[in-house]
Design a protein around this nucleic acid. Structure first.
Length: 430
RNA sequence: GGAACGAUGGCAGAGCGGCCAAAUGCAUCCGCCUUGAAAGCGGAAGGGUUCACGCCCCGGGGGUUCAAAUCCCUCUCGUUCCGCCA
């Protein structure tokens, strides 16, 4: 959530920041929020004044009763009861206005960082690093799409996955399945020097999915298990962010770094029919996520560090990559600043987004109510959250299968993965 | 799934419907003492909102009452016992 107080005191600042996202209806929402907030405060002032009176009268009633003045006490009770009626009406009005304001507020996206590039959509995302490791030319045997070569090799069985679960589910088998798991192990081990490994739940409550920003606006993108009112996580970011929800951390604990392997579930409601072949887009996939809670001062440094970690990991897999920065028009709702790492897949001749590393300022922390305290300082402050995919399996898997395909049709496995492949260096041609 | 009990500050743990933002202990911080520390002694200290007065917060929600941490209903979570189960 954006800061209502900031919206109240400096509406133009918020307005111009959000205008950079380029959706005009947003400004109407802001006006709605401001108006509702004003009305709320007006009602609260009236309600609290009445409450103060009732509290005061109640004390007097107690004192009068003790003194044996029951007649006076009863008279006071009658007056207090009448005030109570009035208060109840105001309180109900407050509740309904507050609900409305909250709903509007929950749908307003985060303000972009001043340094985030302006732009309308993904075409305006500037390349900020690379391409690195892109050869001048690819051999013909590298120009085979993974869905074809992997199926021939027997390491991908899309047909049977569809039989089991329907469209947009995939299944790896044999060394293909081992490769998928190896990538996760490798990604976790590569970040274990600085991040605590978590194995979080994959089903979460509505409150948890609201904290990160998926709800209420993007409910259609998530799987809901109605019977138990639980949602399937679209990323480990969701449970990791809520781990410390409602808690006040000590500043000395920050930055708090976590990482997690998890399955990720996405309905892909808005992308039906796109990337239906192979492993570029599916309803379920595995991912290793890195995550941090930090002070606002620590956040920029952490963002750079996390981008660097992902870059190093991708480079070590001997894949051509580049890094782009997400422009204001293409940013996710919760993002303050965001970078994508893209890998070039030679077979389908595409740059594939394999990682997104983002800084959320205090937007998610305000929703999740995660604060920290500086010893000696008064009060508490909201933390900043950051996260990024250390490695998302399917697209990296696909890129390896395409880029590392050899003339005989076999796939050479990047050296860093050998220890995780039960010694296999190659996925042999049939 | 059934039954019983429970949920109070960083932790532990009191709390006759009004004198309760809430005893006490531990932990924390400051001071005294000490070469330094421990012990001891003295003191400070919850969160939210508000310019402020004030208002709100004793798991969540609702109710009774002039007045609720306290009574009632309900939900969630926890513990124990039973049942089931990887």
């Amino acid at each position: 959530m954006i800061d209502v107080r900031l919206l109240r005191t400096q509406p133009d600042l918020v307005r111009s920041a959000l205008a950079r996202r380029g959706s005009p209806e947003l400004l109407d929402q802001l006006d709605q929020a401001i108006a509702g907030d004003e009305r709320m405060r007006d009602i609260v002032a009236q309600r609290d004044a009445i409450r103060a009176q009732v509290n005061e009268m109640s004390k007097q009633v107690g004192a009068l009763r003790k003194a044996g003045e029951s007649t006076q006490a009863e008279q006071l009770q009658v007056r207090s009861r009448a005030l109570g009626e009035h208060e109840r009406i105001l309180a109900a009005e407050y509740d309904s206005v507050q609900l409305g304001v909250r709903d509007v507020l929950l749908r307003i996206p985060n303000t972009p960082h001043p340094d985030a590039p302006d732009g309308a959509d993904d075409h305006d995302n500037p390349v900020v690093a690379g391409p690195v490791g892109l050869p001048a030319e690819f051999a013909d045997h590298q120009r085979v799409a993974h869905w074809a070569s992997a199926t021939t090799l027997g390491i991908l069985d899309g047909e049977r996955a569809t039989k089991i679960s329907g469209a947009m589910f995939t299944m790896q088998r044999g060394l293909g399945a081992t490769l998928a798991r190896a990538l996760c192990q490798y990604a976790l081990d590569s970040n274990a020097d600085a991040f605590e490994e978590i194995r979080p739940p994959s089903l979460v409550t509505t409150a948890t999915l609201t904290a990160t920003g998926q709800l209420p606006k993007f409910a259609d993108d998530s799987y809901l298990i109605e019977r138990d009112d639980l949602w399937c996580i679209p990323t480990a970011e969701v449970p990791l962010t809520s781990m410390y929800a409602g808690e006040v951390l000590d500043a000395a604990q920050l930055p708090l770094r976590l990482m997690a392997f998890s399955p990720c579930y996405r309905r892909e409601a808005g992308s039906a029919g796109r990337d239906t072949r192979g492993m570029l887009r599916s309803h379920e996939f595995d991912k290793v996520e890195i995550f941090a809670l930090a002070t606002p001062e620590q956040a920029p440094g952490l963002l750079a560090e996390m981008v660097g970690r992902v870059e190093k990991l991708i480079a070590s897999l001997e894949l051509p990559y580049r890094i782009i920065e997400i422009c204001t028009g293409d940013m996710g709702q919760s993002h303050h600043r965001s970078f994508d790492v893209e890998v070039y897949a030679s077979g389908c001749d595409n740059w594939l987004e394999v990682s997104s590393i983002s800084w959320f300022s205090d937007y998610q922390a305000r929703r999740a109510d995660i604060r920290y305290r500086v010893p000696g300082a008064k009060g508490t402050s909201l933390v900043n959250t950051l996260n990024g995919s250390a490695l998302a399996v399917p697209r990296v898997w696909a890129a390896i299968v395409e880029n590392h395909r050899q003339a005989d049709g076999s796939i050479s496995i990047p050296a860093v993965l050998h220890p995780y492949m039960r010694g296999a260096h190659v996925i042999p041609a049939p």
